[in-house]
Computed example of a mutant assay.
Amino acid sequence: MPKEQGRKNVAQNKKARHDYFIEDTFEAGMVLQGTEVKSLRMGRASLVDGFVDIDGHEAWLHGVHIPEYTQGTWTNHPARRKRKLLLNRVEIDKIERRVNEKGLTVIPLAIYFVDGRAKVEIGLAKGKKSWDKRHTLAERQASREVEQAVGRRLKGMDD
C-alpha cells in the first residue's frame, strides 16, 4: 500500500477567524489512540469548543470532539478527552510567554493529515468585540464590490 502524500483536511474551525484576531499560528502533532485516528480518517471531528492549555511545560488540547469509531469495540476512546500536543520546547515557551503577557488565548484552527500523520494547526488569538466583527464584514463586502466593479470594467460592461 503506498504511503499517503500531501495534506488532507479533516476539520476546520471557520468561526475562529470570525471571532478572533489570529496573531500567530503553529503546527503541532497530536498523541492519539488508534480509534481516534480511524475516526479522523473518516473525516469526523469538531473544533468548535476547543482550546489549548499549557500545563507544566506541556501543551494540551481540550474540548475537541472526535466521535467514537463506529466499528470500534471496547477499545473506543472518549469523545472529548484532553489530548497532548507535540511541540518543541521553544515553541511551548513562546506560546506560554505570550499568553501570560498579552492575555491571548490559544485555539485550534484545523486538523489535517500531512504525509499520513495527524496534525493540528493552533493559533494565538485575541478576541474580537462585536464592532470589530461588523467592521471586518464591512471590509470584506467593500473589497468584494471593488473586485466585481473591476471585473465588469475589464469585460467592458457599464457600471
Score class of each variant (00 low, 15 high):
residue 65 H to R: 12
residue 59 A to Q: 06
residue 123 G to A: 04
residue 80 R to W: 03
residue 91 E to Q: 12
residue 81 R to G: 12
residue 63 G to L: 08
residue 24 D to W: 07
residue 116 G to D: 13
residue 37 V to Q: 06
residue 23 E to H: 15
residue 66 I to L: 03
residue 33 Q to L: 06
residue 128 K to Y: 04
residue 90 V to K: 10
residue 84 K to R: 14
residue 44 R to H: 12
residue 159 D to F: 02
residue 123 G to C: 02
residue 21 F to C: 14
residue 67 P to A: 07
residue 27 E to C: 14
residue 59 A to I: 05
residue 40 L to F: 05
residue 19 D to W: 07
residue 37 V to H: 06
residue 130 S to H: 03
residue 92 I to D: 01
residue 53 D to Q: 15
residue 6 G to W: 04
residue 85 L to I: 01
residue 139 E to G: 04
residue 52 V to N: 00
residue 76 N to L: 09
residue 35 T to H: 08
residue 151 G to P: 00
residue 134 R to H: 13
residue 42 M to W: 12
residue 148 Q to D: 14
residue 131 W to S: 15
residue 128 K to D: 02
residue 56 G to Q: 09
residue 33 Q to T: 14
residue 79 A to H: 08
residue 83 R to A: 08
residue 51 F to W: 08
residue 33 Q to F: 10
residue 84 K to L: 13
residue 80 R to H: 10
residue 27 E to I: 08
residue 117 R to L: 08
residue 50 G to Q: 01
residue 152 R to E: 11
residue 46 S to Y: 01
residue 84 K to S: 12
residue 96 E to V: 02
residue 92 I to G: 03
residue 134 R to L: 11
residue 147 E to L: 03
residue 19 D to F: 08
residue 103 G to V: 03
residue 132 D to V: 04
residue 127 G to H: 02
residue 103 G to R: 05
residue 94 K to P: 00
residue 122 I to W: 03
residue 92 I to P: 02
residue 76 N to E: 11
residue 148 Q to T: 12
residue 57 H to Y: 05
residue 147 E to N: 03
residue 99 V to L: 15
residue 6 G to Q: 10
residue 86 L to W: 09
residue 10 V to T: 03
residue 2 P to C: 02
residue 107 I to H: 00
residue 129 K to W: 06
residue 47 L to A: 04
residue 12 Q to D: 13
residue 144 R to D: 13
residue 118 A to H: 00
residue 26 F to H: 13
residue 143 S to N: 09
residue 135 H to K: 12
residue 15 K to H: 10
residue 152 R to H: 05
residue 24 D to M: 04
residue 53 D to T: 09
residue 40 L to M: 06
residue 100 N to V: 03
residue 70 T to H: 15
residue 91 E to H: 05
residue 40 L to R: 00
residue 56 G to N: 10
residue 70 T to Q: 12
residue 15 K to D: 10
residue 64 V to T: 05
residue 49 D to Y: 02
residue 113 F to S: 05
residue 92 I to H: 11
residue 109 L to G: 06
residue 3 K to D: 13
residue 135 H to Q: 05
residue 47 L to Q: 00
residue 158 D to V: 11
residue 146 V to G: 05
residue 42 M to G: 13
residue 86 L to R: 09
residue 60 W to I: 15
residue 99 V to D: 00
residue 46 S to E: 07
residue 72 G to M: 12
residue 72 G to P: 10
residue 71 Q to V: 11
residue 95 I to L: 15
residue 119 K to E: 12
residue 100 N to Q: 11
residue 62 H to V: 13
residue 151 G to W: 02
residue 122 I to A: 05
residue 68 E to C: 06
residue 94 K to H: 06
residue 128 K to Q: 07
residue 157 M to V: 08
residue 55 D to W: 04
residue 151 G to L: 07
residue 39 S to V: 09
residue 29 G to I: 03
residue 87 L to S: 01
residue 114 V to F: 15
residue 46 S to G: 13
residue 89 R to E: 08
residue 129 K to E: 09
residue 72 G to R: 13
residue 32 L to T: 01
residue 72 G to V: 10
residue 112 Y to S: 07
residue 95 I to R: 01
residue 101 E to A: 09
